[in-house]
Computed example of a mutant assay.
Amino acid sequence: MKQALIVVDMQEVFFNHPQNYLLNKEQVVVNINELIKQAREKNIQIIFIQHTSQDEEHTMFEGKDDWKLHEGLVITSTDKIIQKSKWDSFYQTELLDYLRSNDIEQLIFAGAQTEFCFDTTIRAAFSAGYQQNILFKETHSTVNGAVLHASDIIKHHESMWNNRFLTVIDSEIKL
């Protein structure tokens, strides 16, 4: 089964400002880089999704420091970068066409922010026909919310996704 690794919104906004720090941000980056390393070893396509605001004043406008993909990620020129302006990485982007034209059958997800763009993209992928996807624990994260701590948000979403929208793998990262 031909796979692609989709890394959603791992951008500097989550590393530049304490109020936006992802839970366990350093470990999440280490784990995502492990996925990237293994994907490269197995010739699995790596796709970075980059949230891009259309508002020039917004911190996530193209070219601003917070908009950039996190400097700690191992990104090469062979990786695909797709910009999006909505929570859904498939909405008005080339992602679906790119996956289909490359005969991708299974998606491996990683990234941020668990309950926003990450969740929306996982569910949209399922609706688009990608129904055998996987997620390794501790390869996605979020920030504390007004009602729930980040760890509770993550646990809740993993329990909702598992065996519905994808399979959550709670073991060593091994592609």
Rank of each mutant, 00 (worst) to 15 (best):
K68Q: 11
T139H: 06
R100L: 15
E56F: 01
I36P: 02
H58S: 12
E56L: 02
S85T: 14
N31C: 03
M1Y: 07
A128F: 11
K155I: 05
I47L: 09
E26R: 08
T78M: 06
D79P: 06
K155V: 08
E57F: 09
K25Q: 08
L99R: 10
D88V: 00
I6Y: 09
G145P: 04
K25Y: 02
E12S: 13
N133G: 00
E57D: 12
Q131D: 05
I153D: 00
Q132K: 15
I75A: 11
T114S: 12
K2S: 14
A146W: 04
E41G: 00
E62Q: 14
V74Y: 12
R40W: 09
A150E: 03
L22E: 02
Q106E: 14
L69D: 09
E172G: 06
F48M: 09
N102Y: 04
E12L: 04
V13P: 00
L35N: 02
M10Q: 09
H51C: 04
N31F: 01
W87T: 15
T139V: 03
Y98D: 15
T121N: 11
N43M: 04
T120H: 12
Y21H: 13
I154P: 00
A110I: 01
N20G: 01
H58N: 14
D65S: 14
D66L: 01
D152A: 10
E71C: 03
D55E: 11
F116N: 12
K174D: 12
Q54E: 15
G111V: 09
T78V: 10
V29D: 02
S141G: 14
H140E: 13
I173S: 06
F15Q: 06
H149A: 15
L5D: 07
A4K: 04
Q83K: 15
K155C: 02
T142W: 04
D119P: 02
E71F: 06
D65F: 10
L22K: 04
V29S: 04
A128S: 13
A4G: 05
H156T: 13
S141L: 01
T120A: 15
E26N: 12
E26L: 08
R123Q: 09
I47P: 08
N163E: 14
F118A: 10
D79S: 07
H157K: 05
L22D: 01
F61S: 11
N16I: 11
M1R: 07
C117K: 03
A112K: 12
K37D: 09
T52S: 15
N16R: 14
K80H: 08
H17Q: 14
D55P: 02
E26S: 12
K137D: 13
T167W: 00
K155H: 07
I82W: 07
F116G: 10
E71P: 01
L5P: 08
I108A: 05
I154F: 01
S101D: 13
D55C: 03
N102V: 02
T93P: 02
Y21F: 14
T114I: 11
Q132L: 04
S77G: 08
L69A: 09
E115R: 02
W67L: 00
K137T: 15
L69Y: 07
N16P: 03
I49E: 08
